[in-house]
Amino acid sequence: MSSHLHPVLPWAVRRTRLPLLALRCVDCPSGHAAVGDGRFRVNANGKLLDVWLLVNCAACGRTGKLTVHDRVQVGALRADLLAGYTTNSPSLVTDTLLDPSIARRNRFALDWDGCWELDASPVPDDPWPVRVAVVFEDPVPVRPERLIARGLGLSRSEIARRVKIEIPLNRRTRHDFSFVLVCPAG
């Protein structure tokens, strides 16, 4: 895309809360668990540690455990990491929940619906075309088509006609991108 287009409008995507986990509850058919209050459980068995992140079902409130470390030597964990687990560090809760290896290990996916907001500069009436630079302040996976529709209030068909973009509109991304909005017909 040409960089000489004017103006360049900044948009920012921000996480508003932690996502829900798409994780089956053993007590109810809801299929979603919330993070709860972000507590870790550390259990020592001799020189071995187990670390879990506790989560609660959004529907029934049942507490479940996500395995973070299983039977790891006490000395194998960095002191600051172990301190974060024992003090329930909010940033460590976030990092743990968003870690793809934890999701794979515990067989859950993240449900990002309603977890992000778009700070979008308004599009001026003139001059055309307009270039929009989208920056992700948090790694929130979102479809560009959905994000553009939210920011501009355009239908999918109008987005297809008026938006020039170098990435797929219907494939989720969490990386910065830009697009060009051309003048409406008429």
Rank of each mutant, 00 (worst) to 15 (best):
L54I: 14
S2H: 11
K47R: 15
A120I: 01
N170K: 09
A34W: 04
P29D: 15
G61M: 01
S101M: 10
L77I: 14
L92F: 12
G114Y: 13
P168I: 04
A76R: 13
P127S: 09
K65W: 05
P7H: 13
D138Q: 03
T87F: 02
D126H: 11
S101P: 04
L98F: 08
K65D: 11
R161C: 00
R41K: 14
V8P: 06
L18A: 11
L9H: 04
C115G: 08
S121E: 11
K65F: 08
V132Q: 00
D27W: 07
L77E: 09
I148V: 12
V134L: 01
V180Y: 01
T94Y: 04
R105F: 07
G153H: 03
L53W: 07
R15I: 03
L5P: 12
D99T: 05
S2I: 06
V93I: 14
L152K: 06
L147K: 03
C115H: 02
L98W: 06
R162P: 00
R15P: 05
A120E: 11
M1T: 10
I167G: 04
D99F: 08
F40N: 05
E117F: 03
D37V: 11
L9P: 07
V140N: 05
V182W: 01
I165Q: 00
S91H: 10
V51I: 15
W128D: 01
W11S: 09
L5S: 08
D95V: 06
D138L: 05
S30I: 10
G186F: 04
L181A: 00
W11T: 09
P29G: 14
G151M: 05
P141A: 02
I167M: 08
C28V: 06
R71E: 14
D37R: 14
R162W: 06
D113N: 12
R171M: 09
V142K: 02
V13P: 07
D113L: 07
R78E: 15
R161H: 03
R150Q: 13
P19T: 07
C28P: 00
L54K: 08
A185T: 09
N106W: 05
I148C: 03
F40C: 06
V123E: 00
L98D: 06
D111G: 04
L97A: 09
V72W: 02
R131I: 00
F177H: 02
E158K: 11
D80M: 03
C60H: 05
W52Y: 15
R17T: 09
D27S: 13
D126V: 07
R15G: 13
P184D: 08
P139K: 02
P19Q: 07
L21D: 02
V135G: 03
T87N: 11
L118M: 06
I159F: 03
L54Y: 00
T67Q: 06
D37S: 13
V35N: 07
R14D: 13
H32L: 15
G84Y: 04
R104Q: 13
V163G: 03
F177M: 04
T173R: 01
